[in-house]
């Protein structure tokens, strides 16, 4: 037993569960790959690669770039952490596009003929939603910024006590 664990790297139950799972996987795989096996394999593995090695690095990089490119350059004016006012609308608009891009980009060829509904409305709607999200975020940011700067000015004018408001 201890020898098995040393050789295998985990307990026998671990192996048993995995073998059971692989048996089921193989049974389904044979059927999944019955037609156009290469294309299906590309889709299956490509799905993981597309997310892990393309989508995730891209949005991480976008986030980091936003941080360094748009960072606040003047020290004189008090500011507030701003990145989330950019992240939130970008993320919300982005997941909408990620899920509904075939309709938004007018890619679903049979859509209009099948359903008797025009597909052309989606791009405008997505842009409108995106506009509202960014607009609301900008407004929230402006209000927050205004509040903080007013407080800072008041503190400067009054007794020198409250400049520690910033996190």
């Amino acid at each position: 037993m201890a020898r098995f664990v040393r050789w295998y790297g985990a307990g026998p139950l671990h192996l048993l569960v995995l073998v059971c799972s692989f048996a089921l996987t193989a049974y389904a795989f044979v059927r999944l790959f019955a037609v156009r096996p290469v294309d299906v394999a590309i889709w299956f593995v490509g799905a993981a690669i597309l997310h892990d090695l393309i989508l995730l690095p891209l949005y991480s990089l976008a986030d980091l770039s936003a941080h360094s490119v748009l960072r606040h350059r003047t020290e004189r004016v008090p500011t507030v952490p701003w990145i989330n006012y950019l992240r939130v609308p970008t993320f919300l608009s982005g997941v909408l596009l990620l899920v509904w891009f075939p309709l938004i980009l007018d890619l679903a060829v049979p859509y209009g003929g099948d359903t008797r509904l025009p597909e052309s409305v989606y791009l405008g709607r997505w842009l409108a939603i995106t506009g509202v999200l960014f607009g609301a975020s900008a407004l929230a940011f402006a209000l927050r910024l205004g509040g903080i700067r007013r407080a800072a000015r008041a503190a400067e004018a009054g007794p020198p006590s409250g400049r520690d408001a910033e996190p």
């Binding site: 075939p102 890619l107 859509y111 099948d114």
Partner: peptide, 11 residues
Amino acid sequence: LNIQLYYVFPG
């Protein structure tokens, strides 16, 4: 993709 009638998947 299927619910949007975007039939690009292989099969």
